Simulated assay, not measured.
Amino acid sequence: MKIREQLSDKLLDTTCKKCMLDIEIYKQRALAYSHMEGAICVLSDMQENKSYIYKSAAAAELGISMRDNPAEIDSIWEEEMLGKIHPDDRLKKYIHELRFFKLLDGMEMNQRAAYSVVSKIRIKNKNEEYCWVKHRMFYIYSPDNGRLRLAFCLYNIALNLSVASDFMIINTIKGEIVVKDKLDYGNILSPREMEVLKFVGEGYASKEIAGLLSISVNTVNRHRQNILEKLKVKNSVQAFKDSFY
């Protein structure tokens, strides 16, 4: 199963007992944040499978249409924004958010509000060039059924100082990094081996990876064997998990 499909299965609330949080209150907060921070704010409702997108002038800098503001879409995935993210960073973003969900899912309700995701990712701007964007995400849980109800995402254009993407889960109360991205295999694996590893993590079989990369199945299997030897793990799925979880 693909990472995003796993996320959808975890995030979308299909329980019978509905959350009674007033969505209008959170819409107003998203609007205020977009104005105060010069941010693009995405409020996703897991109960209704909808998103509300509030745009500042930063959206125009990223080549995102200002026509509908706020915009309402029938999905928790803001495709216009997600489609602009560098493919490597998009995959890592999904994996990191799945990690975040699993971390909070194992906590008591009263502890969850202290945690958020902070990342720095590459997004194409209006000139079709990648620029650095700071992404923050907060989860809001239902007091009625204990399920995740809302995801609140902020995207701000960042200072162009990074040399690599950065993904962290932080405790904002204590000012501590709880989890930091562990994918540092770029210095160990070849670019092609990294591609193969990522496709393995998304659930593709060797034959499918061969088709996606326009190489033979034997070549894919050779890359998978090289990954095992270089990373000293038992299988390439484990290699992927060790990278991201």
Rank of each mutant, 00 (worst) to 15 (best):
K102H: 12
H223Y: 14
E128M: 12
D242V: 08
R224N: 04
K234C: 03
V233Y: 04
I173W: 02
A113Y: 12
C16S: 14
L189V: 12
M1S: 14
A158D: 15
I169S: 00
M81P: 01
S142C: 15
Y94W: 14
Q28M: 09
R67I: 13
I140A: 06
N160M: 14
E24I: 01
F167K: 09
V178W: 03
S216E: 05
A151N: 06
K102C: 04
C131L: 06
P143D: 15
L103Q: 01
D13M: 04
E72I: 15
K134A: 09
Y54P: 04
E79W: 10
K198M: 10
K174C: 08
L197P: 02
R90E: 02
Y155W: 09
S236Y: 02
K17I: 13
D105Y: 11
L62E: 04
S65F: 08
I173T: 11
S8Y: 09
V217Y: 05
G203E: 10
E78T: 11
I3W: 00
F100Q: 06
R136I: 05
I85P: 00
Y245W: 12
S65E: 09
L183S: 08
A151L: 10
F167A: 07
I3L: 11
R67K: 15
I121P: 00
S214C: 06
G175C: 06
I64P: 00
L11E: 05
Y52R: 07
A58L: 06
Y94Q: 06
I140N: 08
K198W: 02
K93C: 03
V200M: 03
R112N: 06
H223P: 00
E48T: 05
E97Q: 12
F138H: 12
G146V: 05
G175M: 08
A59Y: 09
L148W: 01
P191W: 10
M107N: 03
Q225N: 14
D89M: 09
V200G: 03
I76C: 07
S206M: 03
A39N: 03
E80W: 07
N69R: 10
E193Y: 01
N235W: 06
E78A: 15
R90D: 01
F100L: 10
I85E: 03
V178K: 08
K18I: 07
